[in-house]
Design a protein around this nucleic acid. Structure first.
Lengths: 149, 149
DNA sequence: TATTGTTATACTCTATAACTATA
DNA sequence: TATAGTTATAGAGTATAACAATA
């Protein structure tokens, strides 16, 4: 019965994670994006091209997998490989206009807070936001949970 | 610049989700559990057997996939298929003692709150917990985010 | 007729290892 | 030598469709 607010908060977060997984899969299906394709599109920000290697690290998978994932996105015209001048080994990945559009659709559907959050009293929404801001601020500083993102 | 605490809180949650994905993958690798095997083990609670169909719904995948996922867990001796008396079509899935052990290990590694949460001032931990409790309470009531178990 | 679980199929994701072309 | 990206391979997850057994 020892009170451990951190552990309790984390357990609650885990429950929200799993509801979020359902939402993620559903949005991906609506837009014909397999999970890793969705992640890749999410991680490629407009105007901030990434190399294959950087994308592999962000996706947390072996570099060899990225070839296929990028192939399929490129075939759909959502991203493109670009050469880089100073190192001819590297290929930079950039969103096409179509890719930016689809990314925006996907992210906006994910960004819409579920009704359960919207239904909270405004003061609870603010409390949640403020507490999470401190968690994320710590995340940015220390990065030990994972090298994601 | 219109303030929308719900949207802001949700955006912050998304960032935590992605750090959590890294952690989930890492724990799974440590225990030789592929992601869906990990999910299946998590969803099969000790003393609460589920049918293949129920597990498929909880995993949010087609029932045909569950055959293979369950096969691999059963080959490792972590779960077992059991017949049920009143309906001979159904197979109930139950954890073995080894499965309960591994599940406990996996969940306890996931349950350990990351340093970023532990590092919060106690009052922030409590605020986070209390706000999330209200989110999850809403989740239980309405279930529109996803049918995830 | 409808449902449970399985099989068959084709595609996507996954890590490992070996390869190429650069550096 | 080391690194970026690719290919080859084998195993795992995925949806669809068809099937046998049972309800």
């Amino acid at each position: 019965m020892a009170s451990d607010p951190a552990a309790e908060a984390w357990a609650l977060l885990s429950q929200v994670f799993m509801a979020n997984r359902a939402h993620f899969l559903r949005v991906g299906q609506q837009l014909d994006l397999h999970p890793m394709q969705f992640h890749a599109l999410r991680l490629l920000e407009p105007g901030a091209a990434k190399s294959m290697r950087e994308l592999a690290d962000s996706l947390i998978c072996d570099a060899s997998n990225v070839t296929g994932i990028v192939d399929r996105l490129e075939e759909r015209g959502l991203i493109e490989r670009r050469a880089v001048a100073h190192d001819r080994r590297v290929k930079l990945l950039a969103l096409t206009p179509a890719g930016e559009d689809l990314r925006e659709q996907a992210l906006s559907r994910m960004a819409e807070p579920p009704d359960q959050v919207r239904a909270l009293p405004l003061e609870d929404q603010r409390a949640l936001r403020d507490a999470l801001q401190r968690v994320v601020a710590q995340l940015e500083e220390t990065k030990p949970v994972g090298a994601a993102g």
